[in-house]
C-alpha cells in the first residue's frame, strides 16, 4: 500500500471520526442517574437520544430488568414508555409485573407493552416506536444470543433514536456482548444487601453495574442502589465506596448465617 493511499485512508478515517463524534454543540442532552461516580464518568449522565445496552447472565434477569427499568424511569420522565419483548421472554424470565414496577416508582399507566412473536418483528417494532417522538424511552428485551441483533440492526436503532430524540434501551439477558453502535454498555448483576442488623435486611434494590463500554469516556464499575421514592440511583448507603473491587460472586464475609425477620 503506497503512501498516497495511506494518507487518503487516514483522512477518510478522520472524516468519519469527525462525523461520528458529536461536537459540544450537538452533544445530546444527558440525564443524570443520581450516582455521583457514574455521572462523573458519563460526563453528566446517560445520553438521551442514543442506544444503551444492558447485558446480564441468564439467571440475573431480575436485576437487569430492575436496572433497565431504572434507566427508563430516569429517561422517560412522565412520558409513555414502550416495552417490546418476545413472547417467550415471559416463560424464561417472567412477565413484567405492574405492581413490581409501581413499587420501583415507575408508573404502570404510562407503559405500553408490545409482545412480538420473533426477533425480526421486535426489531422492526422498536425502530417504529423510536420514530415516535411522543415517547420517553423504548425498551427492547431480547433473550439469548440472536443473529439478527447485529451491527446493522443496532446502527438502525441508533439512527432512529438520534432522529427523534427518544432513547433506546436494549436488555439482553443470557447474551454475550457483540460489537454494536451503543453509546454505553452495562453488565448488571445483583448486589448483596448491606450487612447489618436484621431490621434493615431487606432494603432497596442494589445492582452491581459495570460500565463495560462508553463511546465517549472511560469505563467503571459501581454498586448502585435504586431509590424507589426519588426514582433515582444512588451510592449504597452502608458500603464504603471502593467495595466494587470485591468479586460479586463471593458471599460477603459478614453474611455468614441466615438472617430473618418477620414481615411487619
Amino acid at each position: 500500500m503506497d503512501g498516497a493511499r495511506m494518507s487518503t485512508l487516514a483522512s477518510l478515517r478522520g472524516d468519519i471520526a469527525r462525523i461520528e463524534a458529536p461536537t459540544e454543540a450537538t452533544l445530546p442532552n444527558r440525564v443524570a442517574l443520581g450516582h455521583a461516580g457514574a455521572d462523573a464518568m458519563l460526563r453528566g449522565g446517560l445520553a438521551a437520544a442514543a442506544l444503551h445496552e444492558v447485558f446480564a447472565g441468564g439467571h440475573q434477569g431480575g436485576a437487569a430488568t430492575g436496572f433497565i427499568a431504572g434507566l427508563a424511569g430516569r429517561l422517560s420522565s412522565r412520558k409513555p414508555l414502550v416495552w417490546v419483548r418476545q413472547d417467550f421472554a415471559d416463560q424464561e424470565s417472567g412477565a413484567l409485573s405492574m405492581s413490581g414496577l409501581a413499587e420501583l416508582g415507575l408508573d404502570p399507566r404510562l407503559l405500553v407493552t408490545v409482545r412480538a412473536a420473533d426477533v425480526d418483528t421486535a426489531l422492526r417494532t422498536t425502530a417504529d416506536a423510536l420514530a415516535c417522538d411522543a415517547l420517553g424511552a423504548v425498551v427492547l428485551e431480547v433473550w439469548g444470543n440472536v443473529r439478527q441483533l447485529d451491527l446493522v440492526a443496532s446502527r438502525k436503532l441508533t439512527l432512529a433514536a438520534q432522529a427523534s430524540g427518544v432513547t433506546a434501551l436494549v436488555l439482553r439477558v443470557a447474551a454475550t456482548p457483540i460489537p454494536s453502535t451503543a453509546e454505553t454498555r452495562w453488565i448488571v448483576r445483583a448486589a448483596h444487601s448491606p450487612p447489618g442488623n436484621a431490621a434493615s435486611a431487606w432494603g432497596a434494590p442494589r445492582f452491581d453495574a459495570e460500565l463495560a463500554r462508553n463511546r465517549h469516556g472511560p469505563v467503571g464499575r459501581w454498586i448502585m442502589e435504586w431509590k424507589c421514592d426519588a426514582c433515582l440511583f444512588s451510592e449504597p448507603s452502608a458500603y464504603p465506596q471502593p467495595l466494587a473491587a470485591t468479586p460479586p460472586h463471593r458471599p460477603h464475609p459478614a453474611v455468614t448465617h441466615t438472617e430473618r425477620r418477620l414481615a411487619g
Binding site: 434477569g61 427499568a69 417472567g94 409485573s97 424507589c228 421514592d229
Partner: peptide
C-alpha cells in the same frame, strides 16, 4: 406505593 418501603412485590412475575 407506600413511601419509604422497599419493593414488596417482584418486578418479574411468572
Amino acid at each position: 406505593r407506600i413511601a419509604g418501603e422497599p419493593p414488596l412485590r417482584p418486578l418479574r412475575l411468572f
